[in-house]
Nucleic acid binder design. Structure first.
Length: 112
DNA sequence: GGGGTGACAATTC
DNA sequence: GGAATTGCCACCC
């Protein structure tokens, strides 16, 4: 059996679950955080295999756009969920809203 | 084993 | 600011 996939999935899910509300991560970032650089594509597959609900909508492309085609049902759902968490949208791109990241800095380190 | 696929990324024009 | 090209690697026929 593919233990690789099992461990990989677990790590990815853990990382995704750890993304704070109102914050987004790129697929590459998630892969790195999980300890698997260059596995950006597998991140998507891993999330699709997750049995329990996951904040998948907090994972976006590296260019800060949504991974789905604009106008698709999934796209609108993701946009909706993100907006509820205070994420602003400029057209298709995300312009992360400024937020109280006092805790985020401690957990994730200073960003940018 | 071979070839196409993908909720991608980085680089280059 | 795009659009196109190349690299990537497990997964599934």
């Amino acid at each position: 059996m593919s233990r690789f996939r099992d461990s990989f999935d677990q790590r990815v899910w853990q990382v995704v679950k750890g993304i704070p509300a109102g914050r987004v991560m790129g697929y590459g970032e998630v892969a790195r955080a999980a300890g698997f650089p260059r596995y950006s594509r597998m991140v998507a597959a891993a999330m699709g295999r997750c049995p329990e609900p996951l904040p998948w909508f907090r994972v976006v492309r590296s260019n800060r756009t949504l991974a789905f085609e604009s106008g698709s049902a999934e796209y609108r759902e993701q946009a909706q969920l993100l907006r509820l968490e205070g994420v602003r949208f400029d057209g298709g791109k995300i312009v992360e809203a400024e937020r109280d990241d006092s805790l985020d800095r401690v957990l994730w380190g200073p960003r940018d």
